[in-house]
Simulated assay, not measured.
Amino acid sequence: MKKTLTVLIAAGALLGAAGCSAPTQDTTAETCARVQTVGAGPTSNEDKAGMIRLANRLRPVEATASADLKTPLHSIIEFLDESAKETPDSAKLQEMQGAYTSAGQALSAACGGGQ
């Protein structure tokens, strides 16, 4: 789980350097590179502000993500958004936990981070 979060934080840093105006769909390798850059950034998902920053850094990546990674990124962003709410719905979070975990595994598998 920590590796996935590191990958997500790294993608944010790449996003800042590369901009977010890519008009076409990225390849899986390009999406992975962007996700890894977000994961390498200084964002922490330990607190609500960190979850909001991480979700906001992932949104532009999701917009141009490869078809294989668009759904996992969307699941992660949805989970982070719900978690960062002032009063998160614990039942909804519980329901989203499986998709969030699967999304992290899918990113790790696609991006080679599961080693």
Results as ranks from 00 to 15, higher is better:
70 K>D: 03
16 G>A: 12
99 A>L: 06
7 V>I: 15
101 T>F: 06
21 S>D: 11
80 L>I: 06
75 S>I: 01
2 K>V: 13
17 A>M: 12
100 Y>D: 02
79 F>C: 01
104 G>V: 05
32 C>T: 03
20 C>G: 14
49 A>S: 10
52 I>E: 01
62 E>N: 10
52 I>N: 00
64 T>D: 09
45 N>K: 05
85 K>A: 13
8 L>T: 08
112 G>K: 13
84 A>C: 07
2 K>F: 10
42 P>G: 14
10 A>S: 10
33 A>I: 13
110 A>N: 12
55 A>D: 00
86 E>P: 02
51 M>Y: 00
89 D>E: 03
108 S>W: 06
25 Q>L: 13
83 S>D: 02
67 A>M: 09
20 C>R: 07
83 S>L: 11
30 E>T: 14
106 A>G: 04
107 L>P: 07
38 V>E: 03
106 A>I: 07
114 G>F: 15
113 G>H: 13
45 N>C: 08
110 A>E: 07
58 L>C: 02
103 A>W: 07
111 C>N: 07
22 A>L: 14
45 N>F: 04
88 P>N: 05
40 A>P: 00
23 P>K: 11
61 V>H: 01
6 T>A: 14
96 M>E: 04
53 R>W: 04
53 R>C: 00
93 L>G: 01
52 I>R: 05
19 G>P: 01
50 G>M: 01
72 P>E: 03
114 G>C: 10
71 T>P: 07
5 L>H: 05
37 T>N: 12
55 A>S: 10
29 A>K: 13
96 M>V: 01
115 Q>C: 14
83 S>K: 11
8 L>I: 15
24 T>E: 12
28 T>H: 07
74 H>M: 11
13 A>D: 03
99 A>Y: 02
20 C>S: 13
30 E>G: 11
60 P>W: 04
79 F>R: 01
43 T>Y: 13
48 K>D: 04
41 G>K: 00
71 T>L: 14
45 N>D: 06
61 V>K: 00
102 S>T: 13
14 L>T: 08
104 G>R: 02
99 A>P: 00
3 K>P: 04
26 D>N: 15
106 A>R: 08
63 A>K: 14
13 A>M: 05
94 Q>D: 08
54 L>A: 06
57 R>K: 10
72 P>V: 10
101 T>D: 09
112 G>Y: 14
98 G>V: 12
1 M>G: 08
75 S>M: 08
16 G>L: 07
86 E>Q: 13
63 A>N: 07
60 P>H: 05
87 T>A: 09
94 Q>G: 09
2 K>S: 13
33 A>H: 09
9 I>S: 11
27 T>G: 12
51 M>V: 02
31 T>M: 09
74 H>R: 15
65 A>E: 01
27 T>N: 04
21 S>Y: 11
13 A>E: 07
